[in-house]
Amino acid sequence: MKVLVPVKRVIDYNVKVRVKADGSGVDLANVKMSMNPFDEIAVEEAIRLKEKGAAEEVVVVSIGVKQAQETLRTALAMGADRAILVVAADDVHQDIEPLAVAKILKAVIDEEQPGLVLAGKQAIDNDMNATGQMLSALLGWSQATFASKLEIEGDSASVTREVDGGLQTIKVKMPCVVTVDLRLNEPRYASLPNIMKAKKKPLDEKTAADLGVDVTPRLTVVKTTEPEGRKAGIKVESVDELIKKLKDEAGVI
């Protein structure tokens, strides 16, 4: 079985995000970029499937600017076998919307014919949480989102999902799209020997136009603002007062 993992180049989670002066988005000039952490978990899971013998090949795909090549090299250094870069933008500030990403992925999947797509549940930059779901609809494949456990059993996959208030285990028919949550695994370090080997692994480059997908935005960003600063708290005089406020004002007890 071939596993396909889409990976996105996003602003590093440690970076203190700044909004551009014109409010059109987040300033990405000279900012540290990394692989979306959920995608890293997906790559790790795919590599583990390969190590367990449940998969033969791990193919990683990134869609966006040419620099996304660095993200793909990271995935290759972690242990993925092959990478595909789909250049769909010149400007680092142009975000490709989920539907366009899903269409590009579908075109790649039509060529690659993987048995499983493992994707991050969402990218930490725009938090859309839509690509995996859209992709499964376009492919007509079953989907299992927010996976915290994944087991392949013949031609189906058993997926434990993190849902509100608990866990839900479902069985989906393969091929399928699984989006992964935070607790599925802890990604490994790209090891030094694998980093040195990564350069020799194949990285194919295509464009969105090659795949016949129009990436023109359908959404308009009206405004981007920084979150409001946290308001100062209040001091209570006694435990009774605290309980009263929690009951009457906060409504939590």
Binding site: R73, L192, I195
Partner: peptide, 10 residues
């Protein structure tokens, strides 16, 4: 190089 950036990263 890409390798050097990754070595630093890891």
């Amino acid at each position: 190089t890409e390798e050097q950036s990754l070595i630093v990263q890891t």
